[in-house]
């Protein structure tokens, strides 16, 4: 390899050449996918639904990024960054779809940077504090298991864009779940101390799991049209997965998921979301006219 080539390449024109960053979702995952709205589907509903799924991913990614330079081992830095990157990629596609669906043409950044906390539609578990590594693992286990179950069904969505996004995401989510499972087993069945930390993490996460399966009216309507998935329909399947993992990890068999009403899906959040968004949005808001 010649060093000169690298340096001269820098000031050459690259046109549409986007090869300069790997893994950042530059290749259009939706190339060739029909973006017109399916007949009979309310654009406003679809936009809200995409925000729900997109905000879950964006807010969870933002929390996961807190582990970068702070993980127990370099391999975990790489893995958690990778998971965050996947979720960020999903969020970008979903938020862009929201802007198409509601007819405003807003782009992904308009949704990420120019909405306040009450306009975010993520579940509370996504914004919950990162806690220790056990808490991060159990949170990831719950979120990736429920999201995988939803997205596996969304691959059949009548909205071709949602179906394409889901088809890309299921492989990613299967890896996220596998990662969370492998660490739940190690921590649960590791040392007495790690077992205790993991049991505490389960106790902290469990009250927030009910909301993952609470049905919002938008979800119910879109599920009826074959576009969305009612999260209540994956409740038992996800519980069975988590129960198997926790028991295998020598932890107590979990209680049923608590009954819960929707909260984050309606824009009602804990006090933790506003500071998370302040950090996410601060540079963009300081320079409203800027392009990046």
């Amino acid at each position: 390899m010649s060093g000169d080539t690298i340096f001269t390449a820098l000031t050459e024109e690259h046109g549409g050449d986007a090869r300069w960053a790997f893994g950042t979702g530059f290749t259009d995952a939706l190339a060739g996918v029909d973006t017109t709205l399916p007949a009979g589907v309310d654009g406003g509903d679809l936009a809200l639904y995409c925000q729900m799924l997109g905000d879950d991913a964006l807010v969870q990614a933002q929390r996961l990024v807190e582990w970068v330079t702070d993980a127990p081992e370099l391999e975990e830095e790489v893995a958690l960054a990778n998971i965050a990157l996947d979720l960020l990629g999903q969020a970008r596609l979903l938020l862009a779809r929201a802007g198409q669906a509601d007819g405003t043409g807003r782009d992904e950044d308009a949704f990420a940077y120019r909405r306040g906390p009450t306009e975010f539609r993520n579940v509370h578990l996504a914004e919950a504090p990162r806690g220790d590594f056990a808490r991060a693992v159990v949170t990831l286990l719950a979120l990736s298991s429920s999201r995988l179950a939803l997205f596996a069904r969304l691959t059949d969505s009548k909205d071709p864009v949602l179906a394409a996004i889901a088809a890309k995401a299921v492989n990613e989510l299967a890896y996220h779940r596998e990662y969370a499972v492998s660490w739940t087993l190690r921590l649960g069945d590791g040392t007495p101390y790690s077992r205790e930390r993991t049991a505490e993490a389960v106790a902290a996460v469990w009250p927030l799991t009910g909301e993952l399966f609470a049905t919002h009216s938008v979800e119910a309507r879109l599920a009826g049209q074959g576009v969305g998935v009612d999260p209540a329909t994956v409740r038992d399947e996800v519980h069975a997965v988590l129960a198997r993992v926790l028991v295998e990890a020598t932890l107590d068999a979990p209680a049923p998921f608590p009954e819960s009403a929707t909260a984050g899906r309606d824009g009602r959040h804990t006090e933790l979301l506003a500071p998370l968004l302040d950090e996410l949005q601060k540079v963009a808001r300081e320079h409203p006219e800027a392009t990046w």
Binding site: T24, E77, G89, W292
Partner: peptide, 29 residues
């Protein structure tokens, strides 16, 4: 990873956030 990692959370566009995250991840690699 630290000096740049500090800006991942506040990167001013999602594209820049993804690029920076990928970059910092490469450095761990």
């Amino acid at each position: 990873m630290q000096p740049e990692g500090d800006w991942i959370a506040s990167a001013p566009s999602l594209r820049r956030k993804a690029i920076l995250l990928a970059k910092v991840q490469d450095e761990a690699g």
